[in-house]
Amino acid sequence: MKDLDKLSDLVVAVEPPPFLINRIEANIARRKNTTMPTARAWSIGLLLLSVLVMDYAVLSSKWHGSNQSAETTLIEIPDHQLYHE
């Protein structure tokens, strides 16, 4: 069995294949191209979401408002208060 402290003696220096750098650069370029539309999609998505939230807020406040007015109109005044004076 080999001496475990001398494992590096069994390994020689190797270089990555020369085409690898081109593949890395192509990969980065592809990512750059896909990142821009992704960012744009995110901003459009956020804009739509904020519009939806605002719509919801407006609608819900209207609903609350109409509900409140309904409640006020439907309040029943007890007879003893109505005729009491």
């Binding site: 990555p16 294949p17 690898l20 593949r23 890395i24 990969n27 980065i28 990512r31």
Partner: peptide, 9 residues
């Protein structure tokens, strides 16, 4: 090679 590519990206 695949790992090396991922590392540099």
């Amino acid at each position: 090679q695949e790992i090396t590519q991922d590392v540099f990206v």
